[in-house]
Amino acid sequence: MVGYLNLILRLTIWFLLTANFSLQNIFIGIIVAFLLPGLDKTPVVLRDWLRVLGEILVAIPQAYFEAFEIMLRPHNEEDVTMERVKPQRTPGLIFLDIFLITFTPKTIVLKYHKDGWYEVHWVRRRNNR
């Protein structure tokens, strides 16, 4: 079941990149999704996928709120932090985590370290005291 989610994620990315739903492109996308390495390397829990998809749905209104907040009140401070990757993440879930962090306007993943860390750039509002 979860292998299908990896396949669907790859096809979704393919269709977002090509923006073409012709029969030929669908066929090419399926071939590319199967040829990309890493489909069966790590066991995946369906609960993890559902949790990440739920977090993405919550991030959509949060992204709009942060965008308006940045426009209305200046954010002058920048910060770079290291955040730990959740344990036992597959490449597909790591991609979705990076997408989730980068989706909101105040944060972006600068680098993914293979030893299990994200380097995250934050834009913050300076506290006036």
Rank of each mutant, 00 (worst) to 15 (best):
A59R: 00
L39D: 05
A59K: 05
F27S: 14
R47E: 09
L23K: 08
P37W: 02
V58D: 11
F27Y: 12
R51M: 14
G29R: 05
G29F: 02
L23D: 06
R51N: 14
P37K: 08
R47K: 14
F34N: 12
I56T: 01
L36P: 03
V32D: 05
I30R: 08
F27E: 11
L57D: 01
F68H: 07
F34D: 09
V58W: 11
D48R: 14
V32P: 01
E69D: 12
L57M: 06
T42R: 15
L23S: 12
I28V: 11
V45I: 15
T42V: 15
L53V: 12
I28C: 04
F27V: 14
F68W: 11
L39M: 06
E55N: 10
Q24S: 10
V58T: 13
A63V: 10
E69F: 09
A67Y: 00
L50Y: 10
E66D: 11
N25V: 10
D48I: 07
I31M: 03
V52C: 13
N25P: 01
L35C: 03
I60K: 11
G54P: 04
P61N: 02
I28G: 05
F68R: 06
F34V: 04
V52L: 13
D40Y: 15
E55D: 04
G29V: 02
I31H: 05
P37S: 04
V44N: 14
A33S: 04
F68C: 05
Q24Y: 07
I60P: 13
